[in-house]
Design a binder for these strands. Structure first.
Length: 766
RNA sequence: GGUUGUUUAGCUCAGUUGGUUAGAGCGCAUCAUUCACAUUGAUGAGGUCGCAGGUUCAAGUCCUGCAACAACCACCA
């Protein structure tokens, strides 16, 4: 053996495991399986520390595999809708292009190729960290069979009356060109102003003066004595000179501002609700490109919100409508992707009625069918679930599966189309105006997006021959909105295990055996995005939860407790670290001393310390072998096997020296405590105890003592060493397996490899 | 505005159901070393366990209040 451990042969060890089929479980109906679905990484992303935290799952997986459970860890890759499109658009920008330069088919193909380049890289990197994933069951989110399932789920939801289109206020990012769900909006504190504007006899206070051009009412609290008498009258909207009603609404606070609020139903969620109850008009003043449109006086058209604000405030001031301006700090929603302010705007979108899905998901958590670790996330989950609102499942992006709905252009001539003509010029307009100038085939092949009026008729099945059942025309176009990426990944445990949405009884053997899975481990930041949706879909489609336990872990921070980010320059690359110190050292450093569900603190110092530990194990093993060689010289018939192994008789307590007894007792204790700690997800404690046991109890005390003893130490020495390697294997698989393979060449061992060896049992003295 | 978490050695953090002199890694100090490992060993310095009360024979650990920090949720102008 070399003088120090080298991680150079890790690849060799991994392929040893892979070739032996150790990652693929044998389905045995008499045994209870253990299974984890890997939170599917973005197929386009190179590995980062977040992925290195999957180590926790590998520890559980390796532990259960050694316990003898049929154990499945199923890997996958996610096309990651908006995330990936955003990254690709930045690439386009570097080349001097934008998404508007391509028809959607071409753009889709380009992104597809872009992702394919990186997809295998991502798999290779997870192998580097030693993840014992069953690659024979790898799935990619855009596989045909997965897409079939997703479309089938949509059809089922539609048939159950849970899908509808509506034109509500959505969180719209004009830069990304798409709507987002509430979860994708980041609230940031912004120092701004409160503008007081005179509307005839009233003065309103607002943070968004520019939207006044779209006001359709002024609201006051009906109990407000100052304004009661004005309810039912009208006031003149400044700059626009439109008469708008004064309405009474209980939601208005008497204390805030002036107690009178301008109402802009098309650009404010609160105002939208008020407009619905009071049947007010909706005047949308911004288009989906972010600029003010023809619904405002000519001089205000074509402005972005910020510019429009400056103009409107200036004009209000000169005309004497601006009473005063106060400093005001408040929360403003920003796009989680590009960081720009979200524009609340009315837009037609596809929605999923969530109540029927949420109720069983709430029940399941309350009844403990799905458990949470740590427990506090159960409350977070229930709070969110109980206040859940209908889910906007449509996104106006290209990268992802299109919503399976088709419009007949002849039946819906008011559909707005954006497409590239033969000369690559962008053409926009409603079909009624365009149909005589362009052929349907030109429109279809150059199509970027369509926008169907909210009352447009659609089909959820593409009829044979693409013939409209109503007008028998052939001008059908599929909805260009794509699914929210979580609509797909929310069904991930079902899709990857081969659940058949159309015919559940016909699902695969994997599904029947491994579903519900045992544990879902993920970072808490996608508890609502992903975990909650998986529970809802799982219960909706199969009546069973997709996993019995949700294990939430925290994020990786640097030694100062700061979140890693490129801009801070404190990012530690797991691949660089595993290259430098070995994957084992990195893995161990990620769990060592970390309390359950608290932040993972990573620093190079810590990784180096664990590299030293890995080397210590290597050298202790080397020393044991050297000692054995020495004894063999004097006694060639020496039995070279751990005494705990089959075929070697158990010994009486009296046969052991005090130091033997002491180390064997410690070994028994560490076996018990490791079982206990792994059973309750205390990986940090388990690794710390093992570290202490091996380095101090075994190396510093027992081995030091063994130096002064004869061949009789061999059975105990080997027993403790082999069992230590087993206990440590889930944490540091490479070094333990390397040593085991070397030991096997020299001594008599029952089992071929550590990865599939049996988990240690406490030693019973005869 | 609502919720949750954190506060223990110079730094980063452990500390299971309350039980003797409170632990680890890194860092620091002194010493050792042709010895499996300098990616080593031994010894040591360093903590009124955020603050104030309370329960208990006993509290870092349970309860109450306070403070600081962090995160999450949230349609209030």
């Amino acid at each position: 053996m070399d003088k120090s451990y080298s991680s150079a042969n890790e690849e060799q060890i991994y392929s040893l495991w892979e070739k032996s089929g150790a990652f693929t479980p044998k389905i045995d109906k008499n045994k209870k399986p253990f299974s984890i679905i890997l939170p599917l990484p973005n197929a386009n992303n190179p590995m980062h520390m977040g992925h290195a935290l999957f180590t926790v799952q590998d520890i559980l997986i390796r532990y259960h595999r050694m316990l003898g459970d049929p154990t499945l860890w199923l890997p996958g890759g996610d096309h990651a809708g908006i995330e990936t499109q955003f990254v690709y658009e930045k690439e386009l920008q570097k080349q001097g292009h934008s998404r508007f330069d391509f028809d959607r088919q071409t753009l889709y193909q380009q992104i597809w190729d872009f992702v394919e380049k990186n997809r295998t890289l991502n798999q290779f990197q997870m192998k580097k960290l030693g993840y014992s994933l069953d690659w024979s069951r790898y799935h990619y989110s855009l596989e045909p069979q997965i897409l079939d399932n997703v479309r089938a789920t949509f059809k089922k939801l539609h048939a159950d009356g849970l899908i509808y289109r509506d034109e509500k206020i959505v969180n719209y990012c004009t830069h990304c060109g798409t709507a987002f769900s509430n979860l994708e909006v980041e609230h940031k504190t912004v120092a701004s102003h409160l503008w007081y504007i005179k509307y005839g006899p009233l003065t309103v206070a607002t943070t968004r003066p520019e939207t006044m051009l779209g006001d359709t009412a002024v609201a006051v609290n009906p109990a407000d004595k100052r304004y009661q008498h004005l309810i039912g009258t009208t006031v003149t909207l400044p700059l626009v000179n439109r008469e708008i009603p004064v309405i009474g609404d209980k939601s208005i606070s008497l204390e805030f501002g002036t107690g009178a609020v301008k109402v802009t139903p098309a650009h404010s969620p609160e105002d939208y609700d008020m407009a619905k109850t009071h049947q007010l008009d909706f005047i949308r003043i911004f288009d989906y490109d972010g600029k003010s449109n023809q619904n405002v006086p000519q001089k205000y058209q074509g402005f972005y919100p910020k510019q429009l604000r400056d103009q409107v405030v200036a004009d209000l001031d000169t005309a004497g409508f601006l009473e005063k301006t106060e400093d005001y700090t408040h929360e403003v929603g920003h796009c989680y992707r590009c960081g720009r302010p979200i524009e609340p705007i009315t837009a037609p979108q596809w929605y999923l009625k969530i109540d029927k899905l949420a109720q069983p998901a709430i029940q399941a958590a309350k009844e403990g069918k799905v458990k949470f670790f740590p427990l506090r996330f159960k409350k977070a989950y229930l709070d969110w679930m109980e206040n859940i609102r209908d889910w906007n499942i449509s996104r106006q992006i290209v990268w992802g599966p299109q919503i399976p709905a088709w419009y007949c252009l002849d039946c819906n001539p008011q559909i707005k189309l954006n497409f590239l003509d033969k000369n690559k010029n962008l053409i926009s307009g409603v079909y009624a105006d365009l149909k005589d100038k362009y052929s349907f085939d030109d429109i279809k092949s150059g199509l970027q997006s369509l926008l169907a009026p909210i009352d447009a008729k659609y089909l959820v099945d593409l009829p044979t021959g693409e013939t409209c059942p109503h007008c028998h025309g052939h001008h059908l176009l599929q909805e260009t909105d794509t699914f929210d990426t979580w609509f797909l990944s929310g069904q991930w445990p079902l899709s990857t295990l081969g659940f058949n949405v159309v015919d559940p009884k016909n699902s695969s053997e994997d599904f029947h055996y491994f579903y519900p899975t045992s544990v879902m481990d993920t970072m808490w930041d996608i508890l609502f995005f992903w975990v909650a949706r998986m529970i809802m879909f799982g219960l909706y489609l199969t009546k069973e939860v997709p996993f019995k336990l949700v294990h939430l872990h925290s994020r990786v921070v640097d030694a100062k407790g700061q979140k890693m980010s490129k801009s801070k320059g404190n990012v530690i690359d797991p691949l660089v670290m595993s290259e430098k110190y070995g994957a084992d050292a990195l893995r161990m450093s990620l769990v060592y001393g970390i309390a359950p569900a608290s932040d993972f603190v990573v620093s190079e110092d810590k990784i180096r310390a664990q590299r030293n530990f890995v080397n210590k194990i290597w050298n202790a093993s080397r020393f044991v072998l050297m000692l054995i060689d020495k004894f063999k010289e004097t006694d060639p018939s020496l039995k070279l096997a751990p005494f705990s192994q089959r075929g070697i008789p158990l010994q009486r307590e009296g046969d052991f020296s005090p130091s033997d007894l002491s180390i064997l007792t410690s070994l028994n204790n560490i076996i018990d405590s490791t079982n206990r700690d792994l059973g309750r997800y205390h990986f940090g404690q388990a690794s710390e105890n093992l570290y202490q046991f091996f380095w101090h109890d075994f190396c510093d005390v027992y081995i030091e003592d063994a130096k002064n003893r004869g061949p009789e130490v061999v059975p105990v020495l080997l027993t403790v060493l082999i069992n230590s390697l087993k206990l440590l294997h889930p944490f540091i698989p490479f070094v333990t397996e390397s040593i085991y393979q070397i030991l096997r060449e020299n001594i008599q061992l029952d089992e071929d490899q550590l990865i599939t060896s049996s988990w240690p049992q406490p030693i019973k003295f005869g």
